[in-house]
């Protein structure tokens, strides 16, 4: 077996009395597409913040291509090749869509190359109609796509998507799923999502988190049959 692209060992973080992430051991292969699900407050977004250095773990380690990146600065981790679309999009509100993509592409590319990548992503994510518009005025669904496009323009090896389909119509969700599958041909991804239809469209291996810890990790079919998973979702996501 080849070396995993990402591995966490006993990763934990405690906020006062709450252990938001508890001893998470995650192993992601190159070009793997992993879905991460779990009820509200399970610790999914917190785990992403740990992986991107926005939070420092109270215990455990993070290895990227076998190298320890625990405690590295957020920008240094991004430079190694981890990109993220955050749950609440982080965008530059007074800049245009085009500016976003260009800034992401330009960090590692020459000016003409960054211009070309910007055009390419606008085409690929379907942002043509809003490319010149200020991002602050866009709807949540469109902001999601702008941020997704921005992450793609930076071309990180590993892409983390936190609820990429939130605020989208059914058709938009389907398009996003298609895009995720397409991205997965060249990139490893971890996708957090509550929308089970969306998860079903893209999922192979699914990791379920509950109260900060990994409850189970299996194929989508097995997860759907799992009674423990059904129990934690009952009431809230009865349809899952």
């Amino acid at each position: 077996m080849t070396e995993p692209i990402l591995q966490t060992v006993g990763l934990s973080i405690r906020f006062g009395g709450v252990e938001a992430v508890r001893g998470v051991n995650l192993c992601l292969a190159e070009r793997e597409l992993r879905c991460l699900i779990g009820p509200n407050g399970a610790g999914k977004s917190t785990l992403f913040k740990l992986l991107t250095g926005q939070l420092q773990p109270t215990a455990g380690r993070i290895l990227f291509h076998g190298e320890d990146i625990t405690g590295d600065h957020t920008h240094a981790i991004a430079r190694r090749g981890i990109g993220i679309k955050t749950q609440v999009p982080n965008l530059f509100d007074s800049l245009t869509v085009r500016d976003h993509l260009w800034l992401a592409a330009r960090r590692t590319n020459s000016r003409p190359r960054a211009d070309a990548i910007t055009d390419e992503i606008i085409e690929r994510v379907g942002l043509g109609a809003i490319a010149g518009g200020m991002v602050g005025r866009l709807s949540h669904g469109l902001r999601q796509w702008v941020e997704l496009g921005t992450v793609l323009a930076g071309n990180p090896e590993l892409i983390l998507l936190d609820e990429p389909a939130a605020g989208m119509t059914h058709d938009e969700v389907a398009r996003t799923a298609e895009l995720v599958r397409e991205i997965n041909r060249t990139h490893a991804l971890i996708v957090v999502e509550h929308d089970m239809q969306f998860v079903r469209m893209i999922a192979r291996t699914v990791t379920v988190m509950h109260q900060g810890a990994v409850l189970v990790e299996d194929t989508m079919d097995q997860i759907l049959k799992n009674s423990a998973v059904r129990d934690i979702y009952l009431g809230k996501h009865g349809g899952a």
């Binding site: 957020t74 990109g83 955050t86 982080n90 965008l91 530059f92 800049l95 500016d99 800034l103």
Partner: peptide, 20 residues
């Protein structure tokens, strides 16, 4: 342009690999 981006959103700059 990065300076302006930093003004707009420091977190996004860091996440794109720019040292704020």
């Amino acid at each position: 342009r990065v300076v302006v981006a930093v003004r707009e959103n420091e977190t996004r700059c860091e996440l794109l690999g720019y040292d704020v």
